[in-house]
Design a protein around this nucleic acid. Structure first.
Lengths: 231, 231, 231, 231
DNA sequence: AATGAATGAGCCTTCATTCAT
DNA sequence: TATGAATGAAGGCTCATTCAT
């Protein structure tokens, strides 16, 4: 049983395909994959459908991507890159770090709730049990990385006296991120709400997030300045 | 043949066996399904494996459940029922509503991060695109319903003067729930953290959640008690 | 790269199929496999064709046999069993061990040159590079085992004074077997001769084999009995 | 455009490049094909791998060879030519025809058991069912042709009084060839022995072959020289 | 009602061959 | 002529579901 079941065909030197680098086609394929994965999830998406959606032959798929899993990973990585840029620049675009924070919150919520981001989340979460590395990688390069950026921003604000000292900045950052998404992202993930939130909704939720976050960590200037005369 | 071969006393209420309704078997099947779905996710779980895990023939599966999807839905419904009870009772078990809130938070986080709940979340989110009803139902009967309970509790607290007025209690409730899970549930969903959080971690995070929530909505007793003499 | 390419789907406990033991069906499948493998060789035989030839669905194939390779191995093992019996009994069926040897030679050549045995040889040799264990096992349980039997028989003959002493009985046995097949088996293997040899051909070749073998190892009675008077 | 842009001396005989006939490239391709066919067999060798091994584009393969089968045939033909030379010259290189015979035997066994010859045998035998022409041609130009040469040699020896009369020289030649390979070639074909036999093994087996062959067809010089006095 | 053998559609992947450049 | 991207038929295998017993 151990004997000859192993070598079978001598898997061939795996002639690392250097070919298949027409970026046009690659993009075409990712576009098709986007559609199909998004519409059906990882397992229910068939390479057949993807090939059809991309207007490419099934064989071509395998010229550009090693297998279904690699295609999927390439897809979510591409999307993440595209989106990361947008949101994280917002952090440094306002002189007032409090406004910058709120601004960032809105960007983030907008981004996370767009059609594709929600689909990607769903799929990655859906396969996380069987393909833990995909899940972990996605988490670390996505939510976790974002939280780290925020944590650094908060520390800067504390240093500048714009915020009260924060014992656990990492946690505070995550709290902020979760508050910004409260009531918005979760129903999207479960497909209980089928359209991205409106700008008004986003503004409302992020405002409330800011109010709560500042209630906790804001420096109470009014209290200080008001109190003295109260004496 | 079933008729009168062994009259005994009474062969049980006769209508006992309408269409696959031996609750014993049903439970057995759900137990097996629990194992297999949990370990592999919806698509990768095979009816074969489920039948084997449940010690039942494949055919029997289809006597009790219309198909794979219905089996899965029945499973998550059963699990949700089992867990809802535990957590939501916590709300009324403490005379001090603030302590009750914190207590509830801990219960909830504990429950949501247990092995099965995480798996169920993953699976439901994973299929939400293809099976929107499953996703929506899960959301409405789970997170949304929980938030509703909390919202009512908050309103009660406001009415009792234990909290400052809350403009949007539904949102506040969700904020509270999200704060309690901050940094804990998300990495679990992505399988970036493979064990439920420790009690200490839960306590820490829920404490911080309470601190932030009370900073926003707590009645500022000091202010009140201090102010009067200021008059 | 090493990370999540490995576990992929967690190969499932390999629920060792105890089922699929209707000997009727099994036989049916082997019959179909026989036809197709024989007509096309291992690689060019498709499971599809085999299923069709066996009048069985493709899925059923996999209920009875783990995969194509196992099906093939089972097939050649079955055939070998069937044939071994015939030939090796011939060794003990004649009181005269010399006649028994010739008799065995004829049986063996007949057997080895029948349609199926030739096909099986071709296929096994053809896959021996990629599936060395199939090749080795076939050799050891076939030709090598046969040679061993002959070697023992020769030793017995030597002990009984029917043959001159043999320094290397294993080699002598193989020489005998090869002589019996000379000019017959090889062209069959290469498909240069498309029908089994006639009985007359077999008799001729085996006679010549006996003549040569006895010239080498026969006790030279004539010489002995003639020589003395020559002194 | 090819016409007169660089008159130079003479752009080479012009008809140099008819339809894929650069012998350089051809050789390159056959070299790659040798490697891949040898390592994997006919079916498991892919044109892709061959192109890679030959450092040539896949398309070029089809410029020089009609298809996979023709490429393979060209390959074994080339190899056979290369090897035939070596062995058959041995027949005429010794004044003593008996020693020449033994010498030829050793050459032949050495040649037939080298890595490539064994692979080629395996492959040709493996495809002989599906591609009878390949099998027959290989047999006729290889083993059969060799046996013919030996038969002629034997006849010469008989004529010269070096051997007793031989009723069926063709058969005797094959017997000789088979004896020389006894216990050596067959296990190699089945891959039960993975290295060519040592010189010592070859010498031993060929010695035994000669002993047996001469016992049958040698002129019994002793008898003859002894007999006269017996008169 | 329970079984489990049988089904066959469908999945991912490979590969000989073609053809525009 | 040489290239290598593209093709698409075909392969081995799985699995939800059915049905005779």
């Amino acid at each position: 049983m151990t004997e000859n079941s192993k070598p079978k065909v001598k898997p061939a030197p795996r002639n690392r395909r250097i070919a298949g680098m027409d970026p046009e086609k690659r993009h075409q394929i990712l576009e098709g994959a986007h559609q199909v994965f998004t519409a059906r999830g990882f397992d229910a998406a068939s390479m057949n459908d993807i090939a059809a959606a991309a207007n490419v032959s099934k064989g071509t798929l395998y010229v550009y991507f090693e297998d279904k899993e690699h295609l999927f990973v390439a897809l979510i990585e591409r999307e993440r890159e595209a989106q990361k840029r947008g949101a994280f620049e917002a952090l440094d675009q306002d002189a007032d770090p409090v406004r910058a924070l709120a601004n960032f919150g809105r960007c983030l919520v907008r981004m996370i709730n767009c059609e594709f981001a929600v689909s990607a989340h769903r799929i990655v979460i859906g396969v996380a049990e069987r393909m833990p590395d995909i899940g972990r990688t996605f988490y670390e390069n996505g939510p976790m990385l974002g939280a780290g950026l925020i944590a650094r921003h908060l520390e800067r604000m504390v240093a500048e006296g714009k915020l009260a000292p924060i014992a656990d900045p990492e946690l505070a950052a995550m709290q902020f991120l979760d508050l910004c998404q409260s009531s918005l992202t979760r129903p999207r993930l479960f497909n209980a709400v089928r359209t991205p939130p409106s700008e008004a909704e986003i503004a409302h939720v992020v405002n409330e997030a800011m109010a709560m976050f500042m209630a906790r960590y804001g420096v109470r200037r009014q209290l200080e300045t008001v109190s003295p005369p109260a004496l």
